[in-house]
Structures are given as structure tokens and as C-alpha cells.
Computed example of a mutant assay.
Amino acid sequence: MLETLHPRDAVELAVHAQEHGFSGVMATDRFQPWTPRQGHAGFVWDVLGALGERTTGDLGPVAVPGSRMHPAVLAQASATLAAMNPGRHWLGVASGDAVDEHVTGDYWPEAPGRIARLFEAVEIVRKLFAAPAGRDVRFSGHYFRLEATRLWTVPEAAPEVLVATGGPVTARRAGRQADGLITMAAPPERLQVLLDRFAAGAREAGKDPDTMPKVVQVPVSWAPDLAQAEENVLANPPIGAARLPRSDLRSPHDVAAVARLLRAEDLAGRVLVSADLAAHAKHLQRLLDLGFDRLYVHDAGPDARAWIDAYAAEVLPALTR
């Protein structure tokens, strides 16, 4: 969670996590933190580049193609990271939030426009990844233009492109147009709908959904004492998992003002808050059983090393595919 960590600390924690049984990293491309208290917003591509040298697991950014980063530049960054770390990098893309994307001063679209822009960007990225050697790509769409160009540094195999979504319509479209799905932990019945719609879209495009990556981000709050776990999650709430009207907020100060309205019950079903590590293992296993094959877990507490050590000792060994 780069909005809460100095980049050097993020790298050291990822190294510590790998040494204790975790096998990869997902990090979001942020220009600002959600709230001023979080205090950081390191550039995700620099951090993942450093992680490529210090770890051996997978490296997945969730980036936002738009006015802040044109899809062609995003494709270049992804291709370079994949070339430097063969077989380890996948590219996640999302429609984004105004707190990050408004900074260039361009128009911030309504939700349908953001989704349409996202999939237009996916088309550009995939065209650049798939272009034969020495062939230029052109594109003229509603949101983006691409004059004749190509990627000059390319990996042996193109990164998978995964679309982040929380809605069934977008999930179906992701199944048709992308290589995989990313979503946030939610009640099982809601996640099952997303997985079913994603699978339907994949089959419409002639793809096998069983072979496509399905990723879930899992926010949790663990502490040896339940009261402390509850205090931690409200002190550093996982904004992405909360039911907050956040997408159009421009300032971390505005997000913080809205987040102050959160109560622990507002996160029920989306964030596991528990001192019982067996409950954490059960929560993660339920997601695996639903059909997700990659779980990226983030704890709200201030001591990430203690959480990593606790999970390594009692949670990770309890999980089965």
C-alpha cells in the first residue's frame, strides 16, 4: 500500500514477506494518498523495478490509463518491467479515482465514460503488445489517439492484462477483452456474480475462463486483541473497500473528511477484522474455493512485519487450493 509506506520501506517489507512465504506483490499506481495521514504516494513503476532486483515473485501494478498516463506510455512501462523480469510481471488496469487523475486538469468523465475509456486503453495496450516485430501501430478512438509507433523494448512474452472491476457489466466485458480479472473482497454472493459474468464474457470471446487469472485484493485488520484490530482499521481504513462516494473527490483532505464517517460495521463483509488467525485462514480459503487463484492481502495495522510473521506462522500453512 504505497500510500502508507516510504518506497524503501515498501521494498524491505516485500523482501521480508517473500522470506516468510508470500509469493508476489500487487501495488496501486497513486499520485496522492487517500488521506493526508497516510503520507506517501511513491511511483509504482520505480518501486516494482526495485522489487524485481530484490525478490523473485510476481510483480503486478494496478495502473490507470488516462490523461495522467497515456496507454502507450503505460504499455512501454509494462513491457520494460516484463523484459527485465521474464515471466513475473502482469499489468492491472483500472478506471481510477479523481484524487489521482484530476492533477493534469483534464475533464474527469462520469462513471460510464471512465469505463469506456478504460477498455479503449486496453485495446491500445494489447495492440502494442501484440504487434509483430518491426510493425507500427495506429489507433484513433473516442478518448485516445496513437500515431504510427511501436514498442522497441519488448519482453519474450507479453504481460497479461487484467481489468479491475467491482460490477457485473464490466466483469463480463473484461472476460471478453482482457486476460484476467481483479476485484476487491466482498460478500461471497456478490463475488460469485462477478466470476460468473467474467466467465460468460470469456466464453463469448472463445476463451476458457478456467485458465484466466482471477485476482482478489483482500483487506484485513489483525491484531492480538480484537479491540486493537478494530481501532487499526478505523485509523487506516481501506478506502477502496469502503462504501464511500470517493470516485469524484479531488483532495486527500476531502477523502479524509468522508472517511471519518466510517464505522466498523460499514466494512462488514468486505474487510475481515479479527484477532483469530484461524478466522483469517478460513476467510482466505473461502475466496480460493470460490475460484480466485491469486489473493493479495493487506493489513490495516501499523506493524506490517508482525502481521507478516503471524500469517506466515498460522495462516499461509493452513491454505489449500
Score class of each variant (00 low, 15 high):
175 G>Q: 09
199 A>H: 10
172 R>E: 15
204 E>P: 03
150 R>F: 08
179 D>Q: 06
210 D>C: 04
202 A>I: 14
160 E>V: 10
220 V>A: 10
134 G>I: 06
165 T>S: 10
203 R>V: 15
182 I>H: 01
171 A>Y: 01
209 P>C: 02
160 E>L: 13
223 A>I: 09
219 P>C: 10
137 V>H: 02
193 V>F: 03
166 G>V: 15
221 S>V: 04
149 T>H: 07
139 F>C: 08
160 E>D: 15
201 G>C: 05
192 Q>Y: 08
162 L>T: 14
202 A>E: 11
145 R>N: 07
157 A>F: 07
174 A>C: 13
206 G>P: 00
163 V>A: 01
141 G>C: 07
135 R>A: 13
213 P>K: 10
216 V>W: 06
169 V>G: 12
140 S>N: 11
133 A>R: 09
146 L>S: 07
207 K>N: 02
158 A>F: 08
154 V>I: 02
184 M>H: 04
202 A>P: 04
145 R>S: 09
185 A>Q: 02
141 G>W: 01
133 A>D: 14
190 R>E: 15
133 A>L: 11
190 R>N: 08
212 M>V: 10
169 V>C: 06
143 Y>M: 02
187 P>I: 10
162 L>E: 12
164 A>V: 08
208 D>C: 00
220 V>E: 09
212 M>T: 08
213 P>G: 14
171 A>H: 09
200 A>C: 09
197 R>S: 08
148 A>Q: 14
162 L>C: 13
209 P>K: 01
186 A>L: 10
133 A>E: 12
178 A>H: 04
221 S>R: 01
221 S>A: 12
175 G>N: 13
175 G>K: 04
196 D>C: 03
175 G>P: 03
166 G>C: 11
218 V>R: 02
198 F>Q: 02
167 G>N: 02
163 V>N: 00
189 E>V: 13
181 L>V: 13
204 E>D: 13
196 D>R: 14
223 A>F: 09
135 R>W: 07
181 L>D: 11
220 V>Q: 11
139 F>R: 06
220 V>P: 09
171 A>C: 11
164 A>Q: 07
213 P>W: 08
180 G>C: 03
155 P>R: 00
169 V>L: 15
160 E>H: 13
207 K>Q: 07
171 A>V: 12
188 P>H: 15
146 L>Y: 03
167 G>Q: 06
221 S>W: 00
145 R>C: 04
209 P>L: 01
163 V>H: 01
201 G>L: 09
190 R>D: 11
217 Q>T: 12
172 R>I: 08
155 P>Y: 02
193 V>I: 12
188 P>I: 15
136 D>R: 12
189 E>N: 14
